[in-house]
Structures are given as C-alpha cells and as structure tokens.
Design a protein around this nucleic acid. Structure first.
Lengths: 315, 315
DNA sequence: CGGCGATTGTCCAACCAATGTCAATGCATC
DNA sequence: GATGCATTGACATTGGTTGGACAATCGCCG
C-alpha cells in the first residue's frame, strides 16, 4: 500500500478542486498568489497549478481570517501557525459573546432535565424541552441545552447513578423534538446541498440530526440519511444529491483505528471537491494524528453554522 | 521566538473585528474615539485603525456600562480599572439583561420579507420565515421579525406601494407558522392559566396568536379561543378554565368608542380577580382616556413575557 | 407636565486604498 | 473545436477614512 496520500505536502489537487474545498474562487486563488504569495503550488506538465493538502489547509485558514473581518493583505504574511492561532482566537471570541444571564439559565435547565430523566418522567421532559426549543431557537437549544444535557446524562450513567434506560429515554425524546423541528424548518431547495449521516458502525443519530437541523435553519438544502451507512452509500448519495458538503457524526470512537479507517474510505470514495466534515464527541477523541487528510473537524455544535457558511457558495 | 500574541497592548485588529467582538458598530467606534478619546488605536499603512486586545477589553467595558444605562460621556474618562469595578456592580445589581444586539440582522430580514411579500412569493416567504422562527426562537421571531414585518407591510400598503392582497398573504403565512409553533410547544398543564382571544368586532387573530405563543413558551397553560368573541363567551371561558389572566388583542380600532365599550363589557363580565390585558396596535391608539379601569395595556410584544411573569403566582 | 439645550447614535458625501471580478488572449489536452 | 487553466491588465466593488449634518433621546428647568 502506498503512503503518498498520507503526506500532506505532496501536490495533487487542481485549482478547481481547491476552489470548491476552500470556498474561494479560482480567480481569488490566483490573485492571492500573485499579489501576496500566500502559497506556492507546484506546476503540472502544462503549467497548471497543483496544490497539496497543506496548501489547502493554509488557504482555509486565510479564508477564515478574512471571513472574520481581517484583510488579506494583513494576514497573508503570517506563518501558518500564527494564522491558526489567530483564527482560533476569533472563533473563541465569537462564542464568548453570550451574556452571563443566558448561561445560568441554560445550566439550570440542564440540571432540571437531568432530574426529570432520572425520574423517567417522559411526558414532562418532552413538554419542557419542546417549550425550551421554541423559546430559544434551534441553535441555542441544541448547543446550550440538548448537547449538554445528553452529555450530563452520559456522565451520570458512567457514574452508575443512571441506567441506560434513562439515557435512551432522553435520547429518543431529543430525537423526536429535533426531528419535528427539522420538519417544520423545511430545507431550502435553492440552498447549497449538504448530506448528513453517520458512518458504518455508528448507530447514534442525535449528533447527525443536530447538524442537520443547524444546517437547515442556516438555509442549506439538507439531505438527512440517518445512521450506520457504509462509505459507498454515503458517496453515492452525495453525488446524486450534488452535495457541496458531507457531514458525519461520531458519538462513539471505541475502536479509533477502525473509525479512522472508515473515515478514510469515505473520503476516498467522495469526489475530491466535496468537503467532508466530522462532528460529535467521537471526532474530538479521534485526535489529529489519526485524522485522514481532507477531513475537517467540527469541535462544538456552536461552530456548525459558522463553519458551514464558508462553503455556501452557490452556482 | 516571538511572544507578541501574549502582549495585550500590541495592535493587531482591524475595526471590523473590533466591531464584531464588542457589538459596537464601526460608526460608534469612530465617533467615540473622535468625541471622547475612549481609545487611541494605532494606524496601519493606509491609515486604518489597528486596535490592541487591551483596546477591545476597554471598549467592551464601555459597552457594558452604556448598556447598563450609563451615558458614554460620563464613563468615557474613567480608567479601565474603575470601569471594570463599575460594570461588575451594575451586573450584580440587575440580573435582568436583555441583549438587543442583533438588531441589524432583524432589520435586514424584515426588509427581505417585505420584498418577498411584494413579489407575492408565498412559498419562499413561508420557507424563509419558518427557518427564521426555528433559528431565533419564538420570542425573538415574534418581536423582532413578525411584528415589525407586518407593520412595515401595513405602512407600504398605506403608502400605496402594496395592496391588501400582499398584506393578506403575509398575514396568513405568519398565522400558519405561529400556529404550528404553538402546537409544537405544547402548553404546560401545570402552569398558570391564560385565556387569549380577540373581542367582538375584531377579526384579526395574529396579535392574539402571538400573545398565546409567547405565553406558551413562558410556561403558561394557554387556552386560545380565536377571534371575534362576545364578552360573555370570553368571561365564561375564563371562569371555566380558571384563568388568572385574560389577554385580548386589538388590531383595528376604527370605532374607538365602540371598542372601548366592548372592553368595558368584558371587564365587567370577568371576575374581579382576573387580570385583563390588552395588546396590539389598536390598544395603543385607543388612548388612556378611553381605556376602562382595570384594563392593562401591553405596549409592545416584547413586554409580554415580562408582564406575564408578574401574574404567574397562581397555582 | 411641556419645552429646551445637550448628548448620542446614525447617516451621508467625498475620497482613497485594498480587494475581488472580468475580459481578452494564449496554450495544452481531449 | 470545446474545455480547462494561465496570464495580464482593466475594472468595479468593498471597506476604510474625515468631517459634518441630522434626528431621536435624555436630563434639566420652568
């Protein structure tokens, strides 16, 4: 088995692929190179630019920095490390925008939900959560209430204070609520296309559903495929739907090696121009080293809308 | 190795980033600097302002201070340390903190909706609004988008640029969306009881529906009766449901005298302990003098949750 | 309560530099 | 010859600057 495709510095992508993967137009890629020398791609036989994975990563950082309001002239001379730090900072600053009062409200709500789940009071759990979802809006509900609550219940379960039954109850209630909300917030047929699923071996759908809902309210045309899908099925669906982005959710990553292999298989099966995002708890525990090239990680649910907005160029 | 990223006094942020991180508009940043010298940012090559992290921190404090009700002229000369102390005090003093920072987004959305209504593009209007409602949550959607949009369309109609058909289209779409959301956010049977309706002669239901939805997400047990209800029917329903509050919505008040009479009839038919609220455009135009005693006016939709919380002590 | 300066956020006009886009042309490949 | 990419230069748009005007709001005074 050759290892060339593991080396991120070997050039292999034409400009059109880089354009779609970064959300920048070919014109911008060329003019940034000409005016600021942001990257130095190799050249193919006929003189065409050939970009490496490292080039793409740097261009993504530059795009993020400009999207955050910085001018390309200012950030172009920075090293890739400095860029990464700056982008990280901008992202963190965005999250910090939430006022303190809301945080406390969220925490109280989460604790109340854990108690209700502990009492197996499904009806009240359902009603309270539906009201919270309608009041807060999907992004705040998902990132501020749903995800923390499921995480807390998971912790309680590991600590032996709650059983799998509690976890299943809460999980299925969340699923129904988000599914209802997703149905209500109809995907925009005119929007850019995203395919959301869970890779083979992953049967927990809530992460994928959350991503789908966040994408839908952000104006994406969402195709939600559900859980436990083999790589070729995902790739075929992506091609058939004309997807610009494929998002996968990983909740468990017990066998990290196997999961990483599955991700690589999906990446290889997808057209090079399609962006592959991975979110969920499992994605974080996977670690940078095990992550195949060309796969982007969504750290927290709160990042999803912002991250997606980068790839929302529409023909 | 450089350590510049650790020094908070080195200037490195353009004005747009500062605007995002502080929530202040670039205009405000410049005019505060010009008039009060709140910060002294460096200048880049082309004369653009470049702010340091310390500048941003100070500007955030100034923003918090002004948001707490202090005038910029008073707080601008203070040192950063004094500012921090003052903001801390203010925050502790009033836990209630409503962030209306998303105004610009709302305004753009409203204008887009008016355009879509003008084109009689019901499908896109419906889809866009549903996504907005799911994203923002009902309170923000109703007070920030729905009510302003309907008001703007009403203005356009009066100015002769839109016809009643446009107004009806938008109105019915809003109705369906809020009704769906209300159904999804099931009223809490354990909450205090509120009866929502429209008095005899008033056939516009959107105001009442908005109040019902706001009450439902605030944890009230909502009984929504619809439009054009005679006084005795309202009173009987209130008694039967054990209502603590009856809320009526007035959109038109063409014949102010008749409407005032109707309100008085309702008030007299209700048990004295029941609070009677009146909201909507018509309520404002009614005027204090024509308002019967024992009837409370809701000035804007944003006040509804706050106002209701005052009467929510009933078991 | 009404009126009246002072305060304050917003907007506009004019200008400039930075930046993104486009058109024209040429080359290589299928 | 159609397609995709490269190069070049022109062009339009964006976003920043200053200075000033403006309307709404606030606090004070009568």
């Amino acid at each position: 088995m050759d290892t060339t495709h593991l080396d991120p510095t070997v050039p292999r992508h034409p400009i059109s692929v880089v354009a779609q993967r970064t959300g920048l137009t070919p014109d911008v890629l060329r003019v940034w190179e000409r005016r600021y020398g942001v990257v130095a791609p190799g050249r193919g036989g006929g003189g065409q630019r050939v970009y490496s994975d490292a080039d793409i990563a740097r261009l993504r950082l530059l795009r993020d920095a400009t999207l955050a309001g910085r001018s390309i002239g200012q950030v172009a001379p920075l090293s890739t490390g400095e860029l990464a730090r700056m982008v990280e900072e901008d992202l963190a600053a965005r999250a910090e925008h939430r006022p303190e009062a809301d945080r406390r409200e969220f925490r109280e709500l989460v604790e109340a939900m854990v108690v209700l789940a502990g009492q197996l009071d499904g009806a009240r759990l359902d009603a309270t959560l539906r009201r919270a979802a309608a009041r807060l809006g999907l992004p705040q509900f998902l990132t501020g209430v749903a995800v923390p609550t499921l995480r807390r219940i998971g912790e309680e379960w590991h600590a032996g204070r709650l059983s799998p039954a509690h976890e299943h109850l809460a999980s299925s209630i969340f699923h129904d609520i988000v599914a209802d909300a997703l149905r209500l917030a109809a995907p925009d047929p005119a929007g850019p296309v995203i395919v959301v699923a869970t890779p083979a071996g992953e049967r927990h759908v809530n992460g994928a559903l959350a991503i789908a809902a966040l994408a839908a309210v952000s104006g994406w045309n969402v195709t939600y495929l559900g859980a436990d899908l083999p790589a070729d099925a995902i790739a075929q669906a992506a091609v058939a739907a004309g997807a610009a982005v494929v998002a996968l959710s990983l909740t468990h990553a017990d066998d990290r090696r196997r999961v990483a292999g599955e991700l690589r298989t999906v990446r290889d099966a997808l057209p090079p121009a399609v962006v592959l995002l991975v979110g969920g708890n499992g994605a974080a525990t996977l670690g940078r080293d095990l992550l195949p090239a060309g796969v982007e990680v969504v750290d927290t649910a709160a990042d999803v809308p912002h991250l997606l907005s980068r790839y929302a160029d529409r023909p």
